[in-house]
């Protein structure tokens, strides 16, 4: 066989065939992923969309499936996200700036760096245990919006830190040197020159982190989020001075994923329709946020040419 032209041709053809087969298999795998995504969304939509009505958005949970709604869960999700965002964004960006711009190459910086990588791999339910022991028992914050928000903030902190660092790293050092040359201090350089350029990429990371926090269920079950909340937390606005009230952070709460978990784990099929409806809203929220992040990243990558 060796040496003969026909043999070589056959060999090439055989290898090309394998290559073509793999290309088909690869496409198939991608198609499976897309089909699963479609099946998931269709299943949710077919079951859930008929339940979506104005009343579903404005009703409290109920023991009758047809009367139950997600008002308290929606408000709870919004409030918890508020706490999460206000904690995770400043701390995350500050850590990112420290690690990327300030930290000297010593063992503390190395330790923090390894630590951030490892924290990203800690299962989310472990953060729930942390919240249970630290926020709930030791700090006596109770089963409140504050506890939940802080827990989720810790959970998404690594995401914010990592994207901040990547965003800062992508900025050419010429920009830093130019700022120094004009007499800017280090902080002026970071705040006035580097951060504005990095803000787009940082924003992408924040959106991805928050979209993860919105869907997170397990750690909030551990701190004892209730599923049957038939009242709203006190309003953050008051009529008298100082017009703002923070009573809501101590209020018990429920959030969308927990409401969905509660409904899906009930045996009655009517409640599972409610679960599907809640799922539609959850998926729509995360799709929207992920889509926004993908779009922003695409735009910033296109827009900036260093």
């Amino acid at each position: 066989m060796q040496g003969s032209l026909a043999g070589v041709r056959g060999n090439i053809q055989r290898r090309q065939l394998w290559s073509a087969i793999f290309a088909i298999v690869g496409l198939l795998v991608l198609f499976i992923a897309i089909i699963v995504l479609l099946a998931l969304i269709l299943q949710l939509a077919i079951q859930g969309v008929p339940r979506l009505s104005w009343a579903f958005f404005t009703s409290f949970p109920s023991s009758k499936a047809e009367e139950a709604g997600i008002l308290s869960a929606l408000v709870g999700t919004a409030l918890v996200m508020l706490v999460t965002a206000f904690t995770a964004i400043p701390i995350g960006i500050a850590s990112g700036i420290y690690l990327e711009e300030y930290a000297r190459k010593n063992w503390i910086a190395a330790l923090i760096e390894i630590n951030v990588t490892n924290l990203a791999g800690v299962p989310s339910i472990v953060y729930g245990l942390l919240a249970m022991g630290l926020f709930k028992s030791a700090l006596q914050l109770g089963e409140s919006v504050l506890t939940a928000g802080l827990t989720l903030a810790l959970l998404i902190l690594p995401v914010v830190i990592v994207t901040t660092r990547e965003a800062l790293r992508a900025i050419p050092s010429g920009l830093r040197e130019a700022a120094y040359a004009l007499g800017a201090s280090k902080w002026q350089m970071v705040w006035d020159h580097i951060l504005p350029y990095a803000s787009g990429s940082i924003l992408t990371g924040i959106i991805i982190g928050l979209s993860r926090a919105i869907g997170e269920t397990a750690p909030l079950i551990t701190i004892g989020a209730l599923t049957f909340i038939s009242f709203l937390p006190p309003s953050p606005f008051k009529s008298d001075f100082p017009f703002l009230s923070f009573d809501w952070v101590r209020s018990p709460f429920t959030v969308m994923p927990i409401q969905m978990f509660n409904w899906v784990s009930r045996p009655e099929p009517e409640f599972q329709l409610n679960a599907a409806a809640a799922g539609v809203i959850l998926v729509a929220l995360t799709l929207l946020m992920n889509g926004l992040a993908i779009y922003l990243r695409y735009r910033f990558r296109k827009g900036v040419k260093w």
Partner: peptide, 20 residues
């Protein structure tokens, strides 16, 4: 992006998908 979206769907929704 499709793969990214697949990774971003809340796990409780995946649970519903697995069960039902």
């Amino acid at each position: 992006p499709v793969l990214e979206i697949l990774a971003g769907i809340p796990t409780v929704v995946y649970g519903y998908f697995a069960l039902l």
